[in-house]
């Protein structure tokens, strides 16, 4: 089981709102890696993640997670969207949201057990939110909400975590909590894919980078992939972003 790749994607083409958002994407991600998914807006980062978790149906191609089709791998994957589109007035407190992450383990009809509540509490603690556990979800700040949804993903105890732009619009405390989490997840041997814009930390925070612009531009260790030519191809003619990329290049040893 250890030898099976966490993600195997072959010739994946997925349309979003009638237009192909990613074309012929093929990539194999080994288990236990932290992967940074990098590309400009509209590159299809979210589409790829949503296809991996089965929220979008591919036009062509196939996805295997840990050697299983997506439908059979639900328990193995946790996904945190960029901004959860939930009703923020919903009568639910942070702790209950995290407990929802246990549902795949609890199974249909049954009630969460003491063990599930303990895991949920532990996950809340890991993101530093235990003091606000009884706060209604809408009464938390954006960063705190994001941490609650991260805790819910942790509570799923999945072997593969997909995080879509977790750093957008969050405070410094949340950002550090997320990076801390990435380290811990790797120690536990779990695989993490993070879509991000943060090029400055992409080189150090991840074991692999996947440069995406509708198709795969490059996939490999940061030292090999973080090249001006490749970044230019990823970001195309977007001047401002290129400048940013060049600046980051200058920081490289």
């Amino acid at each position: 089981m250890r030898d099976v790749p966490a993600i195997r994607v072959e010739n994946l083409t997925v349309s979003y709102r009638g237009k192909p958002a990613i074309r012929n994407v093929s990539v194999v991600v080994a288990q236990g890696l932290r992967v940074g998914l990098i590309g400009p807006n509209g590159a299809g980062k979210s589409t790829l993640l949503r296809a991996l978790v089965g929220l979008l149906v591919p036009d062509t191609g196939r996805v295997e997670l840990f050697g299983l089709p997506v439908r059979e791998a639900r328990k193995l994957v946790a996904y945190v969207p960029q901004r959860s589109e939930v009703d923020w007035d919903y009568p639910v407190v942070a702790e209950e949201v995290v407990l929802m992450g246990r549902f795949p383990h609890v199974g249909w009809v049954r009630r969460p057990r003491t063990e599930d509540r303990r895991v949920a509490w532990e996950c809340l603690r890991q993101v530093g939110m235990e003091e606000l556990a009884h706060r209604q979800i809408g009464q938390l700040s954006g960063g705190q909400q994001q941490r609650v949804f991260l805790a819910r993903a942790l509570a799923q105890e999945a072997r593969l975590l997909l995080l879509d732009e977790p750093f957008v619009g969050v405070d410094a405390a949340t950002e550090e909590a997320i990076y801390g989490l990435l380290d811990r997840l790797r120690e536990e041997g779990r695989t993490v894919v993070v879509a991000t814009h943060d090029l400055s930390r992409a080189q150090t925070a991840f074991d692999r980078l996947l440069l995406l612009n509708q198709h795969v531009v490059a996939y490999g260790p940061p030292a090999e992939v973080f090249q001006p030519a490749l970044l230019q191809r990823t970001y195309g003619g977007r001047l401002t972003l290129l400048e940013v990329a060049d600046q980051r290049m200058a920081i490289r040893p």
């Binding site: 589109e85 009703d87 929802m100 549902f103 795949p104 609890v106 009809v109």
Partner: peptide, 22 residues
């Protein structure tokens, strides 16, 4: 009563419910 937990998850966060295979 039987589907309480599923109904709550689905009404609160339909995307997560779908991602978890509900």
């Amino acid at each position: 009563l039987l589907l309480y937990k599923e109904l709550v998850l689905w009404t609160f966060d339909p995307v997560a419910a779908a991602a978890m295979g509900l």
